[in-house]
């Protein structure tokens, strides 16, 4: 298990978030797929189980809450990290009872999200 690279999905309709996060996480040894369109991301999780999903909450079309509900249903062991602006912080807190691993407020530092991802990884690897 420890040798297997973890698969991470990043979903945010702001392309800059995906563009910046992908290389940062790849350098840490993760396999990363990025999406700016939530419908495409939804299709993707129908046939691919990700270890970790990092998603924005507020998006056009399918929002982050719908996606994480579906992701958890398909693959209960997937850990979901929610990224969100301050305005939706309350909603983010609510997402906890949907089994969200953690949430993080925009704007955030690369090191902050890396720390959350490492904790999620530790949890996955300890299973």
């Amino acid at each position: 298990m420890t040798d297997k690279r973890l698969r991470i999905m990043i979903l945010d309709d702001e392309p800059i978030v995906c563009k910046r996060l992908k290389p940062a996480l790849e350098k840490h040894g993760y396999d990363v797929d990025t999406f700016t369109d939530s419908t495409e991301a939804m299709n993707q999780i129908q046939n691919t189980a990700y270890d970790i999903i990092i998603t924005d909450l507020k998006m056009k079309g399918i929002d982050g809450m719908q996606l994480l509900t579906e992701a958890k249903k398909k693959s209960p062991t997937t850990e979901v990290i929610v990224i969100t602006g301050f305005a939706t912080m309350e909603t983010a807190r609510e997402s906890f009872h949907k089994g969200v691993f953690d949430f993080i407020a925009k704007p955030f530092k690369l090191s902050e999200i890396q720390e959350v991802v490492s904790r999620a990884e530790a949890k996955i690897r300890s299973r």
């Binding site: 702001e14 800059i16 978030v17 910046r20 996060l21 602006g85 301050f86 925009k106 704007p107 955030f108 530092k109 690369l110 090191s111 999200i113």
Partner: peptide, 16 residues
């Protein structure tokens, strides 16, 4: 500080 590249931000942050 945000312009130094250590943070990830979006346009919403800028307008806010």
């Amino acid at each position: 500080e945000k312009s130094g590249g250590d943070y990830i931000f979006d346009r919403k942050y800028l307008s806010d």
